[in-house]
Design a protein around this nucleic acid. Sequence first.
DNA 1: CTGAAAGCGCTTACAG
DNA 2: CTGAAAGCGCTTACAG
Lengths: 354, 354
Amino acid sequence: MGKSKQATMKDVAKLAGVSQPTVSHFINGTAPVSHTVAEKMQKAIKELGYMPNALARNLKQERTNTIGLIIPDIDNGYYTEITKNVEKNLREHGFITFLCNTFYDERLEKLYINSLIQQKVAGIVIGYGLIGKKAYEDVCKFEIPAILMDDKVEDDELNIPSVEVNNFTGSKLAVEHLYNIGAKKICYASEPLFNRTSNLRFEGFKKAMKEFGYGENDSFICIENNQYNKIEMGYNIGAQILLNNNIDAVFASSDQLAFGIIQRLKEHNVSIPDEIAIVGYDDIQLSKLVTPMLTTVSQPKYFMAKKGVEILLKMINGEPLTKKLFLLEPSLIIRESTMMKVERSTGSNPNNKN
Amino acid sequence: MGKSKQATMKDVAKLAGVSQPTVSHFINGTAPVSHTVAEKMQKAIKELGYMPNALARNLKQERTNTIGLIIPDIDNGYYTEITKNVEKNLREHGFITFLCNTFYDERLEKLYINSLIQQKVAGIVIGYGLIGKKAYEDVCKFEIPAILMDDKVEDDELNIPSVEVNNFTGSKLAVEHLYNIGAKKICYASEPLFNRTSNLRFEGFKKAMKEFGYGENDSFICIENNQYNKIEMGYNIGAQILLNNNIDAVFASSDQLAFGIIQRLKEHNVSIPDEIAIVGYDDIQLSKLVTPMLTTVSQPKYFMAKKGVEILLKMINGEPLTKKLFLLEPSLIIRESTMMKVERSTGSNPNNKN
DNA sequence: CTGAAAGCGCTTACAG
DNA sequence: CTGAAAGCGCTTACAG
């Protein structure tokens, strides 16, 4: 055998005794071919084991069937599920996905986007608010259709639509639930407020606290200053919670954070939920495998991925979009971490606690 | 602006007043260029925002910088980590990764491999023993360098090397540990024996049982017949374990399986490890987040990914391989799920239990 | 229904 | 040091 080169259309044409464009037409159905000729080509294709060269095809057509998916951390269950669903939806539409895991590193964001531009991807799914905002400009400058998930591009000039889950509703659902189970002092735990999502969740929390009648001293804010492993951040926040013995409930801005907190509280034999109730955010798979199973604000990740891909495909096909921001609604999944064995004075208004 | 096409080398050449091949030589450093000409080209590149077209480049060079990664289930923490590390290592060597998540579906395996062949990927990382063995032949027929992880191609004709973790050692470590903590009757829980890995772990288990003096009736074998969600499989196996009240230890062939078992046992208030001790396999991140934290056989996933990529790159560069099978060794991570509060008759030989 | 021709955007001998 | 020419493997008007 040796270095026998792969068969090309030319080889198929030669073996079938036709011209190379005829083979192309046959394979792509771009022109009718006579039955006898078709049979000869079919035979030649099989005999040579011919496979089309996508590079040549894409170069000529000036379009590809490749898509870039940019995510920050595939270890995070939220992004694992987004990745799984985005890739699946794209595949079902004939696209193949480049995985770009950035580790929240601005330098890598840039490197990947350059790479995707050079690969002439048909589109990009941006799975989180990029650290380097300038990257959005590059994507637009090269006229690559792109969809942003769970964040929004501030610059209105840039044509990058978003699929977002209502973070205000999310925080409200959490606070409402904690109110209903009688929480008196709620800790808000968050990673650094480095993007739109984390900011909105915090704003939503503050607003909801007011709505449910909580005052200044009924909350305890724990927002990390630096971005690092989320579970570790939670673990560190857990220590702060332990030092503040009025806290009877925690609302964590992500499940991962909540896991870290739970780990710390368990180490100190704090009973969850009876001493401290905990609500997370995201509803990643893990949240029903930890002990206690985590009450959490559920993001419709499957639907987000589906919607995001749907919008991207529209852009790729040049169809107009009805709007620039697609807002989905979260829901609350109640599990053990807020189901008290001993009922508290349910619904008690903290303002009337004298 | 409108549909302004992206700048090409031709445009750069024109603006700089040189020929297009000169631009190519400048960009790739394939020939020296005079300082003055270089400056003009640099300026033109910046002005036009020129980006090379990888399709054209790859077509001409008859090689690409793309790699396919085939995994069955990115939700499974084992594959999440493999994916993360493979992608990272490839990126560090200038490659970009196509993610192919097959859901263990033979039809999808085939579809993805065809797709990768057409994309003319430089190589393929196959993350698990494929269901459709014929796919290996296709990969070889098209002379695409490929590395198989955690399995081995039976057909010696096919040039697909493997990185494997010693499954015999793994099972032995587990049985040895259970022996040391005094287990009398050990349940072996496994997904269907549909590939080399699951078979080897089972063989390793049986061999180790003999070595440590366990007899016929000291084990209880639970091997599922059909492949479905692993946690659910574990949950179902958990029911069988409950029905057999002699069992005091479980060795599960994957952590996911162990989680399902733990879930079931907890629902029935079986104390872990005091009534039943559990050892898993893989050491995925989750295993230290569940309660009780799982004792497990740890696969060196980081090193596997690194080694796999290293071998693949050698193949791509046409370097000879020293061997076809690269065997790594697992280790045992002891956590809560086998740490008895009440010590059993440690090391007691089950053969002397009269 | 079939084929000759041009061209997608590059790289790479080769000549000067 | 620079450029004219050929060609990678396709698609796509266009002519017949």
